[in-house]
């Protein structure tokens, strides 16, 4: 390889990419399969150990505590009231909490899904690449012979793992509060049929997974935004701004034509898992839409990240 070639390589790939590209082009070193797992583990630990992440998770864990205590105080411990006059105000399932603590899980997820959860995911996703760039650590990450594609995949996997962790934090905190403050037992689905507590727990877990999956589209969007800028703050703000914009557009009835294509549109469909029989239409649409967002913005992030100059 002549020096001229190397120079050209460096120029269009960016200084750091050159190193990685040489490593890939001449596979002298066999890539150990566990290597990317190690990278993922590192990423996960770095992300989850950040004070910022821990604070986000603490806020998420506090929401069910707040709801649980408020409902408990409001009903004064006497379940006689039953919340019948609530008239359906507040987040979904709120009226049922006093009768069954398990409903606190659903209420907490319904309350955090529109804002808190995506906010946390937006922060982590927006920070993924841009944060490294602004801290000046991105080039060192790329010195390792992992390749940009794999680094990007690792970052996305980390964000997805955070989606799951955040959702489970809400669910587990809500379950703990529900057990502490309210009676448990068989629960009535929103279709009026009864299911056992064990099946209820199973559905709660399933709902948590669906909620986590609902965030994958936003995660990909955040990752794409993150590859566009060198400023972590800018990426986070943009991602959260896009989230809020989408939520506002959801509220404008005149825009009903485009609403089915906005990523938050089917978010509340997780409640369909509490129908008997389960009503799959909305759930399937939600997952399809999230997969579409993940594919579009994931590939856009890849196109951007593998071709851009890394200068910081």
């Amino acid at each position: 390889m002549s020096r001229a070639d190397t120079t050209a390589e460096l120029r269009d790939e960016g200084p750091v990419r050159g190193v990685g590209a040489v490593g890939e082009a001449a596979p002298v070193r066999a890539v150990r399969p566990l290597w990317s797992l190690g990278l993922l583990r590192n990423e996960l630990l770095t992300t989850l150990r950040r004070w910022r992440t821990l604070a986000l998770l603490a806020v998420l864990a506090a929401v069910p505590v707040l709801i649980g205590v408020a409902v408990r105080i409001e009903t004064g411990g006497a379940a006689a009231h039953g919340g019948g006059d609530g008239g359906g105000q507040g987040p979904a399932f709120l009226a049922q909490i006093t009768n069954n603590g398990l409903f606190l899980v659903f209420t907490a997820l319904a309350a955090t899904l529109p804002v808190f959860l995506p906010l946390a995911v937006g922060v982590v996703a927006g920070d993924a690449i841009a944060g490294e760039a602004s801290a000046g650590t991105l080039r060192y990450l790329l010195v390792a012979p992992a390749g940009r594609t794999r680094l990007l995949l690792t970052k996305y996997a980390t964000v997805l793992a955070f989606c799951l962790v955040a959702t489970l934090v809400v669910a587990v905190s809500a379950l703990a509060m529900g057990v502490l403050l309210f009676p448990l037992g068989d629960l009535t689905t929103i279709s009026g049929t009864r299911i056992g507590f064990a099946e209820g727990l199973g559905r709660a877990l399933l709902i948590a997974l669906v909620v986590a999956a609902s965030l994958t589209g936003l995660a990909a969007l955040g990752l794409f935004v993150s590859t566009l800028t060198h400023s972590g703050v800018a990426a986070m703000a943009t991602t959260v701004g896009l989230l809020i914009t989408a939520q506002i557009l959801e509220q404008v009835p005149q825009l009903h034509a485009i609403q089915p294509y906005l990523f938050p549109h089917y978010w509340l469909s997780f409640a369909d898992l509490m129908r008997e029989p389960v009503y799959w239409d909305g759930l399937v649409k939600n997952l399809e839409l999230q997969a579409l967002y993940a594919a579009v913005f994931g590939s856009a992030a890849w196109a951007r990240f593998t071709t851009k100059d890394i200068t910081a």
Binding site: A95, T188, I190, S191, G192
Partner: peptide, 24 residues
């Protein structure tokens, strides 16, 4: 079917039940 809620009208033999899950 409503958003995150459901209104059911159930007729079973002698009984007719209406259940509004939104307000329980």
């Amino acid at each position: 079917i409503e958003s995150a809620a459901e209104y059911s009208l159930i007729h079973n033999g002698e009984d007719v039940w209406g259940y509004d899950s939104k307000s329980d």
